[in-house]
Amino acid sequence: MRNENRHISDTLLAKFLLGETSQKEQQIIIGWLEENIAHRKRLDQLEEMWLETGKINPRPIPVNKHLAWKVLNKRLDHHEKLSSTVLTKFSKFKLVLYSAVAASVLILLGLFNWYLIDSSQKQEFLLTNNTKTTLTDTLPDGSKVHLNQLAQINYKPSADGHKRVVQLKGEAFFKVKRDTLKPFIIHAGIGSVKVLGTSFNVKIKKNRDIDVSVKTGRVELFYPNKALTDTLHMVLRAGESGLISLQKDSIIKMKNPSAFFWMDKKLVFRNKPLKDVFEVLEDCYAVKINSNNPSINNLNYTSTFINKDINEVIKVVSTSFNFTYTSEGNTYTILELKKDE
């Protein structure tokens, strides 16, 4: 068989089988096939092999299982190291939760060895906002970050240099510099957010739920659920918001019209029931809004406010429906005028 290789290579036979040969090449092969029954046999074998490989289902994908095992093996090592030191300090539940978070984070990011590497190799960036206003800064990778009051971030490229990793406390708005080779990952307690280059808001609430709203681009949310059966995953696009909820043990898509308010002081309402408008205002300005007639809650409202204080906003809303209002401290009461008055 070796001898025949000199005349017609498997490369040419492969081309022939797959219909990639020119007419001239075809003629050569046909001639070659007629020369010898062994030639025929060789093509038959090749063809048979081709047909058999096509029958398997599920169809294979080009994975590298040796590399994959290395990754898993490292993760297992890391996990065992971690659990032997943490075990004494935490209850089993916490440990399970911790490993779940660690697990998802590790698998998704392949970060399993960041902690091993000398931190001097990496440019770390720590920022805490102790001021009463919003704090804006630029990370070493060129991304912009706005921290709300009391928020804290710790930015660190991964050991292998393939990821940009941020630990977040509180609420921050990110405008991530696009670098498709280095995903930007935010660990926010119970879950994580992964992006390539986009702008979005992440808020860790008091109950540890994570509120994410996307301004431009696309972000992915990750959450390992408590049952440890899955890592949940959701993609958000511009204008969308999602909540990683501990109580619901899931990721939920939701609306959050005021997600960026703390940053840009801008509110947009489009055909929103007043009930929702009031909720947003209560949330943004830390006030309470009542009305003397619950039926007004269903009226729809459209308007945009930029840099307005709450008195102005209430006044504009009231006026557009011919309502009046009273205020006492942080409580506003909207009054509907009786029709016969």
């Binding site: 490369t11 036979l13 492969a14 797959l18 092999m49």
Partner: peptide
């Protein structure tokens, strides 16, 4: 590469 792949698999 296809030639080598098919040769190997055969």
């Amino acid at each position: 590469q296809m030639g080598k792949a098919l040769q190997f698999l055969r």
